[in-house]
């Protein structure tokens, strides 16, 4: 009796192992959550100091057009208008997503529907290669190829939103393409079969059935691409010109949040207004990526296949 009773009451080896596994996974999750919270706390405390410690009004910060944190304007307030950078970031992000989306959808349709064989043999490795190229290489190509090209075709110095858009277009294309491919692949086979059985041509099937069914997925892909474009620093910084001026056209030098941030942070002193203002830019970046993530979630929930 006793040995059996004992073995029933004692934890088995398997359950001990499970316990250990649970502890390790919880520890890992806890660590990641703690890191995320710590980053949020740090960026927020630094970024909000501009408004609370240095008494800059949020309106002046978001809508001001003159960025020169070291100097005071006529009314004695520091010049920390971030609108030029905010608009620059949004312009390059939306424009590059606008150009990249049709290309990505076209490539994905070819890879999944039209020629899956060639698609997986040639296009798949090519897009994967594009993902793997470091952003500094994109920036350097942008500087030595795209900028002179834009200068000779459109005039100006070649530095500006247009060059930034071209570089970002190539950078986000593989991200959007590969995610679109996954979405198209996940459209159930019987949708295609039913459509073809009803007498629809291949084009009608693609256009009216597959793309419609995959719309939420494609939108998610585009938002992910935009998130990447919004956060890209180095490559954009090399081609956009980094002038903290309101963009008056696509070919005049302008700036993005990331480019001003990376350029300025080493030249400012921790705790000074110049430094805090840069952290406020970082806070905007963080909130924007949070926003992009939320958009992805909403699309995923609303647009799930019924």
């Amino acid at each position: 009796m006793d040995p059996i009773r004992e073995s029933l009451l004692k934890k088995s080896k398997a359950s001990k192992l499970e316990m250990r596994g649970k502890i390790i996974t919880y520890f890992c999750i806890g660590l990641i959550v703690a890191i995320v919270l710590a980053i949020f706390y740090f960026v927020a405390s630094k970024g909000l100091a501009t408004f609370f410690t240095d008494k800059v009004s949020i309106k002046d910060f978001l809508l001001g057009k003159s960025w020169n944190p070291g100097t005071l304007d006529k009314s004695g307030k520091p010049e920390v208008g971030a609108l030029p950078m905010i608009s620059g970031s949004f312009f390059v992000t939306f424009l590059s997503a606008l150009i990249a989306t049709p290309f990505a959808i076209g490539t994905a349709i070819f890879m999944v529907e039209i020629s899956p064989n060639k698609g997986s043999r040639i296009l798949q490795p090519v897009t994967e290669l594009l993902v793997g190229i470091p952003s500094v290489v994109y920036g350097f190509i942008g500087l030595s190829v795209v900028v002179p090209f834009v200068r000779s075709i459109f005039g100006g110095t070649g530095f500006g939103i247009l060059s930034g858009t071209f570089v970002l277009f190539v950078m986000i294309l593989p991200t959007v393409t590969s995610m679109t491919v996954d979405t198209l692949k996940s459209v159930p086979r019987y949708y295609r079969e039913a459509s073809l059985a009803l007498g629809a041509t291949r084009w009608q099937t693609i256009y009216k059935v597959i793309l419609r069914a995959a719309t939420p997925g494609i939108m998610t892909a585009v938002v992910f691409g935009m998130a990447r474009a919004f956060g890209e620093a180095l490559a954009v910084q090399m081609v956009i010109g980094n002038a903290s001026l309101m963009p008056s056209s696509l070919i005049t030098p302008s700036s993005t949040l990331t480019s001003i941030l990376t350029m300025g942070i080493g030249n400012t002193v921790m705790g000074s207004l110049e430094n805090n203002a840069l952290w406020s830019l970082a806070l905007i970046l963080l909130l924007m990526s949070l926003f992009f993530n939320m958009v992805v979630r909403v699309i995923g929930k609303r647009g799930a296949l019924k």
């Binding site: 020169n68 910084q237 010109g241 980094n242 002038a243 990376t262 350029m263 030249n267 110049e274």
Partner: peptide
Amino acid sequence: RATGSGTRLTFEKWGLDGQQSKDAQEQD
């Protein structure tokens, strides 16, 4: 050069007699 860069500060102080350069392209 980027705002706050030592080279820029020196150039503005001694080359431009303390005047600030107009907002323009910046590189770090």
